[in-house]
């Protein structure tokens, strides 16, 4: 069993890769804030229900023919769907990036990422408590 097989950790892992993919898109928006004709982009929100039902997990591991085999995980960060940035203004050059809104999104992404890493650490420490009494 690998760590990605644990549902809670897997959901958190996907959440974190979604957030870092979003951060990458936001940084592209900010870098191109003065490029004429550049349209801002964002990621579609993660579907929490899908994530819980496991259908958001598109990572089939290698098939095993014996229960003692270790499944090689091919868990790649799945491609996340993009959508238009939805910033309020388009300026005269056709650029639709609003730096203020992007900065808000960046701060939001950062906070959510922090939440995800904290929950991850907490989950690990709870597991450790279950394994032996001398938790951290």
């Amino acid at each position: 069993m690998d760590l990605t097989g644990i549902p809670l950790l897997d959901v958190l892992r996907q959440r974190m890769s979604w957030l870092s993919a979003r951060q990458s898109l936001l940084s592209q928006n900010v870098a191109n804030a003065d490029t004429p004709g550049f349209a801002s982009r964002d990621l579609k929100p993660l579907d929490f229900e899908k994530l819980l039902n496991g259908s958001g997990v598109a990572a089939p591991g290698l098939a095993v023919t014996d229960p003692r085999h270790i499944t090689a995980s091919t868990a790649q960060p799945t491609g996340f769907a993009e959508q238009a940035g939805g910033d309020a203004s388009t300026d005269i050059t056709g650029n639709s990036v609003s730096v203020e809104e992007e900065m808000m999104k960046v701060a939001d992404t950062q906070a959510q990422y922090q939440a995800a890493t904290n929950i991850y650490a907490k989950a690990i420490s709870m597991m450790r408590t279950a394994i032996d009494r001398s938790g951290p």
Partner: peptide
């Protein structure tokens, strides 16, 4: 614009460090 980029860099770095 430069400052905005610095802020993004800083936020990404913090996430990576976490």
């Amino acid at each position: 614009s430069y400052e905005a980029n610095v802020n993004v860099l800083d936020a990404s770095k913090t996430m990576l460090v976490r």
